[in-house]
């Protein structure tokens, strides 16, 4: 063992450790410069008064937790904006995610059922997954033109007698939020279906077979076998969707023309962040909102990793 003269053994004795560092260097260098440093800077400026007023820059001036206090101070109307926008985000996410998960779960069960033996699955999957790849801003713009007061949906509804004159979908809280939710639902239910299907397919087929031989009904199989075994993947998909929901921006921003109309009821957390980053370049307030978003995401991510870990046991 000691005297290593063969070529093979020699190859093994050379340390290749430095190559490991060389190979991962570009990734970590770029991450440090373009993500990690900006991240630190974001947190740093959240403790500063620092924004642009016209052409002049105000600050940076250290103000401690004042930006955070400002976030939590009620406005003249008596609402705490960040809570209101968090609420909007959650409501619109829930409105889209509930049908998204119910339907995706149902479709995943239908598609994988050998008893139902659904034909044409690959084309169906192709169709329902497609909206996931569509540019959200273009999809939203399409929704805006189709649902606008002079758009075809209004003219269709009027001609069918459902409504007697054009209805402005974007100036009514319920319809506005419903459209945001509908878009998010359309964009994501296909993706969720495919993920849950893969989850069900990874369950041992013999479990389903023996349940069927025992005469268990479809619903019993679902609740006693499918659901418990699918749970880790279901939770993973669900929480990733929550993290995605927290980032909701493109759809409500374009549907509401950046205003969160009506009355800022469709304004999300990231739209709030964007308002401070846009014209005013208020790095102090934008930083504070980013930190809040960061903490919320971190909490959700920890839950994700816990479910993955449990998965391994």
């Amino acid at each position: 063992m000691k005297s290593t003269t063969t070529k093979e053994a020699k190859a093994k004795s050379i340390s290749y450790a430095k190559w490991g560092y060389i190979f991962i260097l570009p990734f970590f260098l770029v991450y440090a410069v373009f993500t990690f440093y900006p991240q630190i800077l974001t947190i740093y400026y959240s403790f500063f008064k620092y924004f642009r007023d016209g052409l002049t820059w105000i600050g940076p001036e250290f103000i401690g937790f004042d930006n955070y206090k400002a976030l939590l101070t009620p406005t003249a109307e008596g609402t705490i904006d960040i809570l209101k926008y968090f609420g909007n985000t959650v409501i619109m996410w829930v409105m889209g995610a509930v049908p998204q998960f119910v339907i995706a779960l149902a479709l995943a069960v239908f598609f994988t059922s050998t008893r139902l033996n659904i034909k044409g699955q690959s084309i169906m999957k192709t169709v329902i997954y497609m909206p996931n790849l569509i540019m959200a801003s273009a999809f939203s713009m399409l929704f805006f033109t189709l649902f606008s007061t002079v758009g075809p949906i209004n003219s269709l509804f009027v001609s069918m007698g459902i409504i007697d004159k054009a209805f402005d979908f974007f100036f009514c809280t319920i319809s506005m939020r419903t459209l945001v939710a509908l878009l998010n639902f359309l964009m994501w239910f296909g993706n969720t279906t495919i993920l849950l299907m893969a989850g069900i397919q990874s369950i041992d087929e013999s479990l389903f077979e023996s349940a069927r031989l025992d005469g268990a009904s479809g619903l019993r199989v679902f609740f006693n076998i499918t659901m418990p075994l699918l749970k880790p993947i279901f939770i993973y998909t669900f929480i990733t969707s929550m993290i995605g929901g927290l980032q909701m921006f493109d759809v409500p921003n374009i549907l509401s023309n950046r205003t969160g109309q009506p009355n800022r009821t469709s304004e999300t957390m990231v739209m709030y962040l964007n308002n401070y980053l846009g014209v005013s370049k208020n790095f102090g307030m934008a930083g504070a909102i980013s930190v809040v978003l960061f903490i919320l995401t971190a909490v959700l991510s920890v839950i994700v990793f816990k479910t993955i870990d449990r998965d391994k046991d």
């Binding site: 373009f34 993500t35 900006p38 740093y44 927290l246 980032q247 980053l277």
Partner: peptide, 24 residues
């Protein structure tokens, strides 16, 4: 450590560091 780090930051959305990015 490198592996754990990458996995740990995987879920952090890019919006969260956007303020610093725009500043730079």
């Amino acid at each position: 450590l490198a592996y754990t780090f990458i996995i740990a930051v995987m879920m952090i959305p890019s919006q969260v560091s956007a303020a610093g990015f725009v500043k730079i």
